[in-house]
């Protein structure tokens, strides 16, 4: 006996009606690693943290993020970074600056190449991190030091994220046309649904009928 549903598509799945044995636990990577997505809402606006996606690689993460975070609002660019590539400070209290209370020692005796790092600030707990700028450094620790000098006037800062620029997959300038979507999607806006007139007409009609009786 198969499971019977009101939905013909479910009936076509031919699922047995008997109780199923529990599904075996899956590995934590069954649905891939996590990536963090940043969205630019309009030209010139800072990239702002939107949320995470699960994906097998940065390209797929980009496509998922585009679907998930730019589908319903304006967007002019997306940045994608694997979660493991984000270095972050502890969280300070609101109104305070983490730059005042958190220090890290620069690694000594190690020479690494000078590279660009992107710096993100969270201004208030509960809010999203936004991109504040870029520094050139030889380590995350040095990048944090430089960020402190360069951006600590932007208060308050409750949390800082630092990401190597090369680890960020950035949407390209020449692919801009990907952000132009079909203009006519009014059906998914609240403003497209106006029923007051219809309700008023209905009420009037009801009253008219009642007064006739």
């Amino acid at each position: 006996m198969n499971l019977q549903s009101l939905d013909p598509r479910v009936n076509r799945l031919n699922i047995p009606a008997s109780t199923m044995t529990p599904m075996a636990p899956k590995s934590v990577l069954d649905q891939f690693a996590t990536y963090e997505a940043f969205i630019q809402k309009k030209e010139g606006a800072p990239f702002t943290f939107a949320g995470a996606v699960h994906a097998p690689n940065p390209d797929v993460a980009f496509l998922f993020a585009k679907e998930q975070y730019s589908r319903r609002s304006s967007c002019t660019g997306i940045w994608i970074v694997q979660t493991a590539h984000v270095k972050l400070t502890p969280y300070a209290s609101d109104e305070a600056s983490i730059y005042d209370s958190f220090d890290i020692d620069k690694p000594e005796g190690v020479t690494r190449p000078l590279e660009p790092y992107e710096v993100f600030h969270q201004q208030k707990r509960g809010k999203a991190h936004t991109h504040v700028g870029r520094v050139g450094a030889t380590s995350y620790e040095e990048a944090y030091e430089l960020a402190k000098n360069k951006f600590s006037h932007l208060t308050p800062v409750v949390n800082v994220w630092i990401i190597k620029s090369k680890n960020i997959l950035q949407s390209a300038e020449e692919d801009k046309d990907m952000w132009v979507t079909t203009a006519e999607k009014k059906y998914r806006e609240a403003g497209a649904y106006r029923v007051m007139e219809r309700i008023k007409r209905f009420k009037k009609e009801q009253q008219r009928r009642r007064s006739k009786i």
Binding site: V28, L29, F32, A33, T34, E36, F49, G51, A52, P56, Q82, T83, A84, V86, L88, Q122, A128, H129, W161
Partner: peptide
């Protein structure tokens, strides 16, 4: 790949 919980 290794699993890292989302950041925020």
């Amino acid at each position: 790949a290794r699993y890292v919980r989302p950041l925020a």
